[in-house]
Design a protein around this nucleic acid. Structure first.
Length: 705
RNA sequence: GCCCGGGUGGCGAAACCGGCAGACGCAAGGGACUUAAAAUCCCUUUCCUGGAAACGGGAGUGUGGGUUCAAGUCCCACCCCGGGCACCA
C-alpha cells in the first residue's frame, strides 16, 4: 500500500507516520479507556447480541445473513444477553446533535449531517404512566402523540419487558421468548405483526379508560420505555395491529378543515384538532401536546420527554486484532483497572487464530492469568479487545506529536494545528468514524487535552473509483482494478490524470480503461510540444504570440481558481488541454520570447497533475530545483483580456447574431448595431419592438411582438 | 414510509451569480501520410428538417405546470435512479 502511494507520486510527510497496531500507539487507547472508566463513561452491561448456537459465539450484525449464521446458513441466530464494555457516547448526544447546526452547518456535506441527525434520531414526546388495575404498578409508555391519548385502545409491551415477565405465566413467557428470537432472525419490518393478550388491564390516566395490556412483537425494548399505548385511529402500525386482533378503533383527531371520520379505513396520522378528549377537545394537536404533557408532569403521572435513537458504543470484540481492554477480573475485587504504570497491555503475538469466534486470547495462559493489582490474588485478564474504530477516533491528533511516550500528544502541539482545516474521506464513514471522532474530541476537550469542540472545520466526501460496470469494486464481482498494474501499463502520471479528469472529486467514477489512453496522448502531446519548441530561435508572428499568451493567462487564471475554490480538477485538466490545442494551432508562428513564457508556465501547471512528466520537462528546460518547489505561475489580467467583447444578440430569447465590439461600448450604440444587424432584421421585420434588454459586453435581447 | 443526493449526446462530463446548452475527453465513422499496420495529423458526430453548396430553420437538459425579456440553473407537483434510516411509538 505504501509502495503504491510512492509509485503514484503522493507526497506525504512520512516523518509523522502513525501505526495504530503498535503498542506505542494503542497504549493510549488503553489510557483513554481508563479515563473513560474514571468518569463513568466506560461501563459493563448485559446486552442482547446475536448468538450462534452452532459456533458458540457472538456474531457482529454484519455476520448475520437472513437471520442465520454466516457460517451455518441453516442455523437461526438467537438473541443472548452478554456482558460487554460500552462507551457512553450518549452522554454527548444533545451536544453532538446541536453542534451540527452550530458549527458544521455549511462546512460539512449536507448528506453527512443528515445521516448523523438521522442516526442520533431525536424525537420529542412524552412519557405517561398507565396504571395496572390489580397491582397499581405503573406501566410507563413513550409517545410523540400524547394529543391522541384519548384514542388509546390498548397498552402493548415489548415481549422482553420486565412487567411482561411478571404478568405472564410459563407458556406466555415461552411465546415471548420465541418472538424475541424470531425478530433476531428476520430484520424488523419483514415480520408480521403478532401479539397476545396478557389478561391484565391498565388505566389511562387521562380518560380513566380500562385498556387491555398486550404483548406485541413490533414493540422494541431498547427504544423509549419498551411499552406503547396503541392508538389505532392515528398510527399506521397500531391500526394494523388492532384491526388484526379486533381491538376497538377510537378516532380523536379531525383534520383542521374537516370532520372526524367515525369509521376510518386507515390511520389519520397528521396533526389536526383534538376531539372527544374531555377538557382538551378543540385544541390543535401541537397545543394539546404541550398542555397535556405539562398536566402529566404536574399530576405526577408523566413528563415531557426527548428520546434518542443513538445508543452507547459497544466496543468489546471477541477478536484477536485490536487493543486489549486494560482491566482485570478479580474474584474478590471485581473489575479492576490495569494501573497506568503497567500500560501498555501488550497484545501477545504467539496466538492461534482458531476461527472459533471467542477471543483467541483466552487460550494464552501467560496473558490471561495475572495477579489482581489490588489484592494480589489470582485473577483473569479481560480477553476482549477494542473495536478498531477506537484507533481511528483520534489518530489525526497523534500526527502532531507522533512519538510522545508520556501522553497521547502534547496539547500545545495540537492547539497549534487544530481544528483541521479540511478533512477528506469517504461517505461510508458518515455515521461510524465521523461520529466516533466527534465524540472523542468532545471527551478529550473535557479531559483538558484539546480546546476545540469539533475535530474538523471542513469536511469533504470524495467519490469512489468504481469498477467498469459502475458498481463498487469487489473481488467476488471480479471487477477490481490493480493500481500497480495500471501504473505499469500506462504510467503513474496517466493514471493520475485519468482519475482526476474523469469526474469531479466528490463523484463516484467508473474506471473505464478504454478512456485512459486519451490522457496518455495528452501527456505525449505536451512532451512533444515542449521538447521540440524549447530551443526555437525564429522571430514568430506577434499576433499569434498575443493569442497564445492570452490563452495562457486565461488558463492560469482558470486553473488557479479551481485550486482555490472547488477542486474541480477535471475542468483544470480540460483547460490545460484547451491551452495545448491553441498552442498547436499557433505553434509555427510563436516567437522564442513568447515560448520562454509559455513553456515553463505550462510545465508548472502540469506538475500537480503529472509530477513525473513535469519534473522531466522542467529539467529539460534547463531549470534547477524540483518542479514542486517552484512558485505557482501568476496570471496577468491585462494579457488575459480578450481584444473585443462578443455580444450575443437574441430576438425573443433566441440566438440570432453576435457582435464584436470594443469593451465598454455604450448601451445605446449596442442597441443600434443590434437592431440594424442584417441577421437580426428578418426576425424583427413587421414586428413591434417592445423592449430591448442590454447587458453591456455580453448580451442583447430584443423583445418583439 | 421518512431523510439526503442525483437525472444533460453512444459514453465520462462542462456550463461556477438566471444570459450562446454540450467546453474537454472517450468511442464511432470518414480522410491524409504509409507497400501495410501502428503512431501522428485533419474532418464529421444531440435529434428532426431545407439546400447542389454556401448557409439556414425547428426541437431539445426525466415529466407536467409556473416565474422571467431570458430557465439545465429559481418555484410547485410528479416520475425514475443511487444512498442512509426504518414496526423508533
Amino acid at each position: 500500500m505504501k509502495r503504491q502511494m510512492h509509485r503514484i507520486g503522493f507526497s506525504y510527510d512520512w516523518r509523522t507516520e502513525v501505526t495504530t497496531c503498535e503498542p506505542e500507539y494503542y497504549r493510549w487507547n488503553q489510557w483513554f479507556f481508563l479515563r473513560m472508566l474514571e468518569r463513568g463513561l466506560a461501563y459493563r452491561k448485559k446486552a442482547l447480541l446475536n448468538w450462534c448456537p452452532e459456533c458458540g459465539t457472538v456474531l457482529a450484525n454484519e455476520q448475520v445473513v437472513d437471520g442465520c449464521c454466516w457460517r451455518h446458513e441453516s442455523t437461526p441466530v438467537e438473541q443472548r444477553a452478554l456482558e460487554q464494555w460500552f462507551w457512553k457516547i450518549t452522554a454527548y448526544t444533545e451536544e453532538l446533535l446541536r453542534s451540527i447546526d452550530d458549527q458544521l452547518e455549511g462546512k460539512w456535506p449536507e448528506r453527512v449531517m443528515a445521516m448523523q441527525r438521522n442516526w442520533i434520531g431525536r424525537s420529542d414526546g412524552a412519557e405517561v404512566d398507565f396504571t395496572l388495575e390489580n397491582s397499581g404498578e405503573p406501566v410507563r409508555v413513550f409517545t410523540t402523540r400524547i394529543d391522541t391519548i384519548y384514542g388509546a385502545t390498548c397498552v402493548i409491551l415489548a415481549p422482553e419487558h420486565p412487567i411482561a415477565q411478571k404478568l405472564l405465566d410459563e407458556t406466555g413467557r415461552g411465546r415471548a421468548k420465541q418472538m424475541v428470537d424470531a425478530r433476531a432472525q428476520k430484520g424488523p419490518g419483514d415480520i408480521a405483526k403478532e401479539g397476545f393478550f396478557t389478561g391484565a388491564y391498565a388505566i389511562n390516566p387521562f380518560s380513566a379508560a380500562r385498556l387491555p395490556v398486550w404483548i406485541g412483537n413490533f414493540v422494541l425494548m431498547d427504544y423509549g420505555t419498551g411499552a406503547i399505548m396503541a392508538v389505532p385511529a392515528h398510527d399506521e402500525r397500531d391500526f394494523e395491529f388492532c384491526t388484526h386482533y379486533g381491538l376497538p378503533i377510537v378516532p380523536v383527531i379531525r383534520p383542521v378543515d374537516g370532520v372526524l371520520d367515525e369509521n376510518p379505513k386507515a390511520a389519520f396520522t397528521d396533526d389536526g384538532i383534538v376531539e372527544n378528549s374531555g377538557e382538551y377537545s378543540g385544541l390543535p394537536s401541537e397545543e394539546a401536546r404541550r398542555v397535556m404533557s405539562a398536566r402529566a408532569l404536574h399530576d405526577g403521572f408523566g413528563e415531557p420527554k426527548i428520546t434518542y435513537r443513538l445508543k452507547d458504543w459497544g466496543i468489546s470484540r471477541q477478536r484477536y486484532w485490536g487493543t486489549p481492554i486494560p482491566v482485570i477480573h478479580c474474584p474478590k475485587c471485581g473489575v479492576v483497572p490495569v494501573p497506568e504504570k503497567d500500560l501498555p497491555v501488550i497484545l501477545p503475538t504467539d496466538v492461534k487464530i482458531t476461527g472459533k469466534g471467542r477471543s483467541p486470547l483466552e487460550d494464552v495462559p501467560e496473558f490471561v492469568n495475572v495477579k489482581c493489582p489490588q489484592c494480589g490474588t489470582g485473577a483473569r485478564r479481560e480477553t476482549d479487545t477494542m473495536d478498531t474504530f477506537v484507533d481511528s477516533s483520534w489518530y489525526f491528533y497523534r500526527y502532531c506529536d507522533p512519538h510522545n511516550d508520556r501522553a497521547p500528544f502534547d496539547p500545545a502541539a495540537v492547539a497549534r494545528w487544530f481544528p483541521m482545516d479540511q478533512y477528506i474521506g469517504g461517505v461510508t464513514h458518515a455515521i461510524l468514524h465521523l461520529l466516533y471522532s466527534r465524540f472523542f474530541t468532545k471527551f478529550m476537550r473535557d479531559l483538558g487535552l484539546v480546546e476545540i469542540d469539533e475535530p474538523a472545520d471542513n469536511m469533504f466526501t470524495q467519490g469512489m473509483v468504481l469498477g467498469a460496470d459502475g458498481s463498487a469494486m469487489s473481488k467476488s464481482k471480479g471487477n477490481t482494478v490493480d493500481p500497480e498494474e495500471m501504473i505499469a501499463k500506462y504510467g503513474a502520471d496517466t493514471c493520475r490524470l485519468f482519475t482526476l479528469f474523469a469526474a469531479p472529486p466528490e463523484k463516484d467514477m467508473p474506471w473505464i480503461e478504454a478512456s485512459v489512453g486519451g490522457q496518455r496522448r495528452f501527456l505525449e502531446r505536451v512532451f512533444r510540444f515542449v521538447t521540440r519548441n524549447m530551443d526555437r530561435e525564429s522571430p514568430g508572428d506577434p499576433a499569434a504570440g498575443r493569442r497564445a499568451l492570452r490563452k495562457l493567462h486565461q488558463i492560469i487564471r482558470k486553473v488557479t481558481e479551481d485550486f482555490d475554490n472547488r477542486w474541480h480538477f477535471n475542468t483544470s485538466i480540460a483547460a490545460l488541454m484547451e491551452l495545448l490545442n491553441t498552442l498547436f494551432d499557433e505553434e509555427s508562428n510563436l516567437s522564442a520570447e513568447a515560448l520562454a513564457q509559455i513553456l515553463p508556465s505550462l510545465v508548472l501547471m502540469l506538475a500537480p497533475f503529472a509530477p513525473y512528466t513535469a519534473e522531466e520537462l522542467w529539467a529539460q528546460l534547463g531549470r534547477t530545483g524540483p518542479v514542486f518547489r517552484q512558485p505557482w505561475p501568476c496570471y496577468d489580467p491585462e494579457l488575459a483580456q480578450e481584444e473585443a467583447a462578443e455580444v450575443v444578440v437574441q430576438v425573443n430569447g433566441k440566438l440570432r447574431s453576435r457582435l464584436h465590439v470594443p469593451f465598454g461600448t455604450l448601451e445605446i450604440d449596442l442597441k443600434q448595431s443590434a437592431l440594424s444587424d442584417p441577421k437580426v432584421q428578418p426576425f424583427t421585420e413587421g414586428k413591434q419592438v417592445v423592449k430591448v434588454i442590454v447587458i453591456p459586453d455580453k448580451l442583447i435581447n430584443i423583445v418583439v411582438r
